[in-house]
């Protein structure tokens, strides 16, 4: 009987298996192939396209292979859409997150019909933006029930212009985004151990102190994540900007510009450039929020999520 040898007697297969490499990795293969084929490849292809500007763009804006980017930053019609998108997406996401907190806190209690209320709140998520748009056009239009009510109640003298402008798109973003933010924040809240609140109570903290010193810090990472997700939703707003907005004016968002280049001008190179810039800007905002979150608080939420 000898002392333990230092060299492994296991076969190569075993040694690979130990590092997690074996035939079961084949399970991953179909999903990976599809994502590579339908996401990674086209995406790289699209990036390549952005450096092959059409003759028209090159002639008009110059800049050689970078002409698409020169056009993006120099053409005010296109570049202004960045600001327009931000003016819609940032306030909408902020409002959705901030309004969700008190609602989620109130709905945290058990009461009759809780499931019904949450189910109704889920509705707009399922309906999607196109349907919300049709509803808004009818309900909040000049002759819709909303204006009619406001007129008859004597709150306004003439119908408010609530659709086909910035307000209409904002309404649409809140209607679809708020339930989403609310559900996420509810699930974060339920991840906070209620005994923490009870503990703070036994230590003599009032409700504001408990919220400010216990709940809010624990919720902060969740708020950041929720903000990111609602922002992502609002940022890529497309149908509502066209249907209830002013597509060539104050709601000329980036996705509309990208689609205009793609569908109407058939300039796939420029369309890819705008689409890519959308991704870059959105991920930039996401990264900023994540950075803020990591500076803010480094503990765990006390629960999964």
């Amino acid at each position: 009987m000898t002392a333990v040898g230092s060299r492994s007697t296991a076969s190569l297969r075993h040694r690979l298996a130990e590092r997690g490499v074996d035939v079961s990795l084949l399970f991953l293969l179909p999903a990976l192939l599809l994502i590579v084929g339908l996401f990674v490849y086209p995406f790289s292809y699209g990036i390549g396209l952005t450096f092959q500007p059409s003759a028209l763009v090159q002639e008009r804006w110059g800049g050689g292979v970078l002409a698409n980017y020169v056009a993006f930053f120099s053409d005010p019609f296109v570049f202004d859409s960045v600001g327009i998108t931000m003016r819609l997406a940032l306030p909408a996401a902020l409002f959705n997150v901030l309004a969700s907190v008190p609602v989620a806190l109130v709905l945290r209690r058990k009461f009759r019909g809780k499931r019904l209320v949450t189910s109704i709140l889920v509705l707009p998520i399922t309906l999607g933006t196109v349907l919300t748009a049709q509803g808004l056009l009818i309900f909040a239009g000049r002759q819709g029930w909303l204006n009619r009510f406001l007129l008859e109640a004597g709150i306004v003298d003439e119908p408010l212009r609530l659709v086909n402008n910035y307000t209409g798109v904002m309404f649409s973003l809140i209607i679809t985004g708020f339930p989403f933010a609310f559900l996420l924040i509810s699930s974060y809240l339920s991840g906070i151990d209620p005994s923490l609140d009870a503990a703070a109570r036994t230590l003599g903290a009032g409700w504001w102190q408990r919220f400010r010193r216990v709940t809010l810090p624990l919720l902060a990472p969740g708020l950041a994540t929720t903000f990111i997700l609602t922002f992502v939703l609002a940022f890529s707003v497309f149908p509502s900007a066209r249907l209830v907005g002013d597509a060539m004016g104050e709601t000329r968002v980036m996705s509309l510009m990208a689609f205009r280049a793609f569908g109407e001008q058939n300039d796939y190179q420029m369309a890819s450039t705008i689409a890519l810039m959308m991704g870059v800007i959105e991920l930039g905002v996401v990264a900023l929020v994540l950075l803020w979150r990591s500076l803010l608080y480094k503990g765990s939420t006390g629960g999964k999520g």
Partner: peptide
Amino acid sequence: PGKRFVNLLFLLPILMPPITYGIPLAT
């Protein structure tokens, strides 16, 4: 090996605006 990378790969399509990858894909 590479599990984090694979996870990121599956996360990106959810994180990105659909138009961003939709336009190159449609092209």
